[in-house]
Design a protein around this nucleic acid. Structure first.
Lengths: 294, 294
DNA sequence: TCATATTCATAGGCAGCCCCTATGTATGAT
DNA sequence: ATCATACATAGGGGCTGCCTATGAATATGA
């Protein structure tokens, strides 16, 4: 018995018409008829009752066809699985990234990655961590750039780099005189934070030893918006280094480092531990780790 | 890709040795080596890391081999399942039977048939002739016991036996004095008949040379009901021999034969002329024909 | 160090099977 | 009655899987 025979069997079961089934299988009708007959002889059972005008499945075929579908599906799964092992650096890769990282990191990644993996077709998706992880688990994303350690052992991560937090202040702010912000000053600062769902929100509140957003009447869904609110004098905030270092500060704001080793976040590359193209993930991680970051 | 290739893959994975695996597959070692190489090229992935002294599975093969095992297992299941359908006398058979025959014939058939075809799984369906034939044509039944000759040449029949009609009378009925009922007496009898759709209704009316039910205010959908109406004195009726011979008559009724050779019906086993298990139909027919019927 | 054994890879010839086109047969529709 | 449709049959051609014989590389033992 041959997988091809099973595909023919399934086609006839689906079409109940030899000519149409043959067309679907890209063979001639006599070829398909002959192979079905051969399969019937091999199995010792009639699979289809055929007249010149109708083709009907026998009870035996009713039982056999589902098994044939399963066998063919397994074989197809093998091919698809092998596809992932062909050239791990080629093909489509769906990359998720959190909003507080994407706009600042991706411009630095894309060119080196293009050089390292010219055949890679990158599809970007920006969303908050929980959404990215859900999509990872639903196979709607392949890898994700996040700044937390995911729950569950179905997701593995590679550590990419540590990113310190910097304090962003209005020019006239009292702390603007300091060269570095201390832990005690953080606890008393009037910090603004992002909307719910952003990991940076939770991390900022944690670093500042504060429980909830002191300015709940504002809702900022992007880091740029938050920086503009700082510039307008509504308060200060913490920003990850990539977002504010290596570029002109938002007019009206001043950036100050925290006291050495005080706070930051760890950027990781997350992926299903069953993801077949692990080598590609390793290459991506090495590309990002090899960047000269400010 | 071929199921055979997958069997080769599994064999090498099991033995981690090409020579032994080839022996297990009953092929030569070069044949197996070549097929594995071909499979690797088709999948675009190396499946085994081989040196002259050791064979090791690659991560790709670690993932693929379980799927290959599943596919092969499905294929083997198909062969085993088909094995169960090889014997035409085994498996499921959907048998339709008309209501004026089933309750009286089936008890006599089931045991001999069970002896002749122990592995046969009989599914019974009782309905009037037209419904049985429709279901036969729709492949919802395989064979049917009927008492008419079906229209159309897509249905073949085996003649099983002739079943005479007997007159069933109320005890006090005038004809109860006769030893046999003549044609002229039939034409004048106050016969009760079954509801529309039963072949026995049409046959009774025909035998009695009557056009329509003289007692249309009654509607009997079962022969037993009809006999009870006779017992209650509403009239007489014709019943097939199996329904009234060889058992105690319904209290209050008397059974009289018709004049020799006057009327009866022919019981046949009907089936699609394309039905593949014709041998089973022949066996069933021979079992019924071999019965000692009253 | 050299010979031997083991193991997988390669080469070339042969046979079987799958696929094709052309044709046949039966049935239903116009 | 003719045409259209659908499945079956016949015969030839090409691909491919299988075999035997041989090669190449490595481990073992004298």
């Amino acid at each position: 018995m041959n997988l091809r025979d099973l595909r023919y069997l399934i086609a006839v079961a689906d079409h109940l018409h030899f000519g149409n089934a043959a067309e679907a299988c890209h063979v001639s009708q006599p070829t398909l008829s002959g192979q079905i007959r051969k399969l019937e002889e091999m199995l010792g059972t009639t699979l289809f009752e055929r007249t010149n005008k109708s083709v009907q499945m026998t009870p035996a075929a009713e039982q056999i066809v589902p098994l044939a579908r399963a066998a063919v599906a397994q074989a197809d799964a093998i091919v698809r699985l092998a596809q992932g092992w062909r050239d791990p650096l080629a093909g489509s890769l769906r990359l998720g990234v959190i909003p507080t990282l994407g706009p600042y990191l991706m411009p630095r990644i894309l060119n080196p990655l293009r050089q390292r993996c010219p055949a890679l077709d990158l599809v970007l998706w920006e969303d908050v961590t929980d959404q990215l992880l859900s999509r990872l688990r639903r196979h709607e994303l392949d890898v994700a750039l996040i700044a937390t350690v995911p729950d569950g052992d179905d997701i593995d991560t590679f550590l990419l780099f540590e990113e310190p937090f910097l304090m962003v202040l209005p020019e006239q702010h009292a702390l603007a005189q300091e060269t570095a912000i201390s832990d005690g000053q953080l606890a008393k600062a009037d910090v603004l934070v992002l909307a719910d769902g952003h990991c940076l929100r939770d991390q900022t509140l944690s670093v500042c030893h504060q429980q909830s957003d002191p300015r709940a009447d504002f809702r900022a869904t992007s880091l740029e918006m938050l920086l503009n609110m700082v510039a307008a004098g509504y308060g200060c905030t913490l920003a990850p280094a990539l977002a504010v270092a290596g570029r002109a500060p938002v007019p009206g704001t001043i950036v100050r480092p925290l006291a050495p080793g005080l706070a930051g976040r760890t950027v990781r590359l997350a992926f299903r531990n069953t993801f077949p193209r692990r080598q590609l993930v390793e290459v991506m991680a090495s590309v990002v780790s090899g960047l000269k970051l400010p």
